[in-house]
């Protein structure tokens, strides 16, 4: 068991070419010192960062992820970081569903001239993650369980309905939908929250089934939810053609994945 003080967080940073990556370079040119926990991947715009990739980083055991872009309103590609903001907000919500602290994902904005700000962000975040501990310490899950949940979360974020909602958030909340209605941020957040929960639950069930044919009770046990909740989801999944009843044992239908996604 590692002591808190000995724990060196393993952190991944996605930095955009025009602002945050440049600020990191400026910190270098100015010889500002900071701890070596953050490893940087360069992207052209922070909006390139697909939420599923952030989840992948956690699945692979990284303790923290940073996504840094230009200050809002100054994105080199005009509107990219507005999308980053909203996508990462959803990603944080999904982390909550998994049971992880959403603070393991840090989204922030740095301009190319702010070498010092970049360094303080890195220092601050490294300490924050150090305090949170290795990935999963805040849950009581075993590593395998955590990975399964994270995978379910990643698959949820890959689903069409969630991506569609996330992508249209800006338009719906700031502009109008086709009926000329505007959606309030609270209403949207509520809808998003519910949708994510549902999708996450579905994915967890699917993942838990593997190749086997399982009954509702068996699935409920693996996933740790009530049989009624599981049954509700099975109905949806069956309708969507993702599972089917392959046989009946006694009174219990046995469901199996159909192989679709």
């Amino acid at each position: 068991m590692t002591l808190q003080e000995d724990f060196e967080p393993d952190i991944l940073g996605f930095l955009c070419n025009w602002c945050s990556y440049a600020s990191a370079d400026l910190a270098g040119v100015s010889r500002m010192q900071y701890p070596p926990n953050v490893k940087i991947i360069r992207v052209m715009c922070s909006a390139r960062v697909d939420p599923t990739i952030v989840l992948e980083a956690f699945i692979q055991g990284l303790d923290g992820v940073m996504v840094l872009g230009c200050h809002l309103g100054t994105c080199h590609y005009m509107t990219g970081n507005y999308y980053t903001e909203r996508r990462m907000k959803t990603t944080k919500n999904v982390l909550k569903n998994v049971g992880l602290s959403p603070e393991r994902l840090r989204v922030d904005w740095v301009s190319a001239a702010e070498g010092e700000r970049f360094v303080s962000l890195v220092r601050e975040f490294t300490e924050k993650v150090r305090k949170l501990g290795p990935l999963g310490k805040e849950t009581d899950l075993e590593l395998e369980q955590l990975k399964t949940r994270l995978t379910a979360a990643k698959e949820a974020l890959a689903q069409q309905r969630i991506r569609w909602l996330v992508g249209r958030e800006r338009e719906l909340v700031e502009d109008k939908n086709v009926f000329g209605e505007k959606v309030s941020q609270e209403e949207f957040d509520q809808l998003m929250f519910q949708t994510i929960e549902k999708e996450f639950a579905k994915r967890r069930i699917l993942l838990s089934m593997g190749e086997d044919a399982l009954s509702v009770r068996e699935i409920a046990q693996i996933v740790g939810a009530s049989p009624r909740e599981v049954l509700r989801n099975m109905v949806f999944l069956e309708r969507a053609g993702l599972v089917s009843v392959v046989r009946i044992e006694g009174n219990s239908p046995k469901y199996q994945r159909t192989g679709g996604s």
Binding site: V43, A47, D50, Y77, Y83, R163
Partner: peptide, 23 residues
Amino acid sequence: CGACGAGCPERAITMRHFTDEQL
């Protein structure tokens, strides 16, 4: 910039030189 690719609901977009696989 890749903003379109990271948001496509059907994952139908591959961003050249910054593909999901590469990242």
